[in-house]
Design a protein around this nucleic acid. Structure first.
Lengths: 220, 220
DNA sequence: ATCAAAAATGAGTGATTACTCACTCTTATT
DNA sequence: AATAAGAGTGAGTAATCACTCATTTTTGAT
């Protein structure tokens, strides 16, 4: 279950880090598997070492503590999950050439993009989802990225889609909340809560887009 | 933070159980606090005993294992969270006398009702939210209650609100998914993810209702 | 081939874990 | 007052925990 692509892993952890030794990569892969299977607190360093095919001491050569290992795995995922689809390049593709397009287009692009990300990184996101409640470093990183990267860009973007009526009467935070919880609700349901159900993904995505679009349209 | 009302606790655990001794009540209260603060796996029975003002052995008089304690706390919450607002009495209040009313009314009633429940039981629901991923007993109970109690009643109810067009074209599972994830998204955001934000609850609830109603209406 | 630095090892550490059990205390019934 | 049963106790147990460190192995530049 959930074999980890080595290149993908490297890309995830390489954000600003130096390279990992082969054994270090093994350790990180094993840690991701076990953390997501039984949770951080219930995972033991001895089991991680065993599954990585490595002496337990090797873990502590590279990571001062077990929690250090968790943090080094989990923090880069937050950036990778939140930031890229708000990068300039991504936005330009939406507003290419002609007039800016409908909210449909934007939502569809975002959802398909994040769908792929979640599909490839389910284990990592399960860890993140679980541990964010207990580790303030994770919460702080979330807050920082949301406030500095996501909120301002998304706000600008939404203003393009909304009428003057809507902009005056509906608080932007509410629109964020409803949009994000619908999209995350879809992704979590699809990949974490009931992944074994026989979903018709294209159809579900299309319904989700229409639900958000009409839901927001009806608020004013 | 999160002091536990003793009567409320009794009511929760009394579903079909015998009474608890005073010390047992203390144990359950302490366990709820500590489980929700640090998670089940990171909570130690010695700390629970200490906070309950009880010898550690007393815990194991009443519960065979630490996990037994968790399960005895968490399973009744699932029923209490899911079932009551679908009880006959509750539904009768909505369809009282005249014609059946709008979807608005139903959603408003459900949301306010569950809002109060979540407000009073935040710690319990945080435990449930965390541990459902690791304990199959919890998942099974969820599935059972959803399939036997919630889905069939909610299906009947929704059929009252939807036109023939909608009933034929939109799968009911999709409507469930969108509705539930929007409502849970609101409650989780409000009470667990960002409880310290200065929410205007009445306004948010009203927006949430309109969002769902118009979102579904637009699907056909 | 030499050798210094980095990587890896695994036996060993004290602390903590969930759980046991022989025993005492409390309570209610007679 | 006697007694039986359940509630409560807390010292004790083996297992496991995260982490250390003296030592060995691997690596890469010369």
């Amino acid at each position: 279950m959930g074999q980890l692509d080595k290149e993908l892993l490297q890309e995830l952890l390489d954000v600003s880090e130096k390279e990992l030794t082969p054994k270090q990569t093994k350790i990180v892969q094993a840690a991701i598997e076990i953390f997501s299977e039984k949770g951080f607190a219930a995972a033991s360093t001895s089991e991680i070492a065993k599954r990585a095919g490595v002496a337990e001491g090797t873990i502590f050569r590279h990571y001062k503590t077990k929690k250090d290992l968790l943090i080094s795995i989990v923090l880069p995922v937050i950036s990778k999950f939140a930031v890229p689809f708000l990068a300039e390049q991504f936005l330009n593709e939406i507003f290419e050439g002609e007039e800016f397009e409908e909210m449909d287009q934007f939502l569809r692009k975002v959802i398909y993009n994040r769908y792929e990300f979640v599909r490839k990184n389910t284990a990592l996101l399960k860890i993140l989802l679980q541990e964010m409640f207990y580790h303030s470093e994770i919460q702080d990183t979330f807050k920082e990225i949301y406030m500095e990267k996501i909120a301002p860009k998304y706000r600008n973007l939404m203003e393009q889609f909304l009428t003057k009526d809507q902009l005056e009467s509906i608080p932007m935070e509410t629109i964020f909340r409803l949009t994000i919880s619908t999209v995350l609700g879809f992704l979590l349901t699809r990949f974490i809560i009931v992944p074994d159900y026989d979903w018709d993904d294209e159809r579900e995505i299309e319904y989700t887009i229409q639900f958000i679009k009409n839901g927001i349209k009806g608020l004013s």
